[in-house]
Amino acid sequence: MSGQITEAIGKSLGRILIGFMIAIIVGLILGYFIWRFKLVEDTLGFVVTALQSIPSIVWFPLAIIWFGLNDFSILFIVTIGATWTMTVNATSGFRNVPQLYQRVAKTYGSTGFHFLRTVILPASVPQIISGLRIAWAFSWRALMAGELLGGGGGLGQLLEMGRSLGQMDLVISVMIIIAIIGTIVDNVVFSRLERNVQLKWGVK
């Protein structure tokens, strides 16, 4: 049994990292289009709000049909769990960039991609980080649910194994590990990041 938990942790964290990365990128891009184009806002923007209210595990049956009962399905629901929240937060982050910064940048002749890169993106960092935090919580839940049902290793799988072997000590310890990882990421990574950024950006 030795090394099993470490391996499972590694596997779970690997999955969530990949899924989370994809979700951030997709969320930022979708957020950009929703912010930039009124038509996209009226159409896709509305759909995203609707999709956001679907718990990501609900996508699992579809994912199994599309990709089969494998790693890819789990990755899919992890990603989709975080994408919509990320999109919504990115959109509102872009939308709430103070007019003053935009006017200043335009005065100095910033346009197009430069404007996006040097003003819109950095100015919306506080809200994007809040988005990351929520998105991470969502995908962490999705990951556990996915692994529990889907298998293929990871903490969720270990939990399921503990159940079938009647090893409650394993079940409880995995639960504790899940809680510890969740707390560490939230408190050490996101909470600190959020506080620093809010202080620096003068939001608080």
């Binding site: 003053l100 005065t107 100095y108 003003v119």
Partner: peptide
């Protein structure tokens, strides 16, 4: 525009840049 620069009522400095980076913003452009 770059030849007619405006100083606004509020400083409007970019909080994510240092003082030096703020001042060189227009020059880099």
């Amino acid at each position: 525009g770059p030849e007619r620069v405006v100083v606004f009522q509020e400083a409007g400095l970019f909080p994510w840049l240092t003082v030096l980076e703020n001042v060189t913003y227009g020059l880099k452009l």
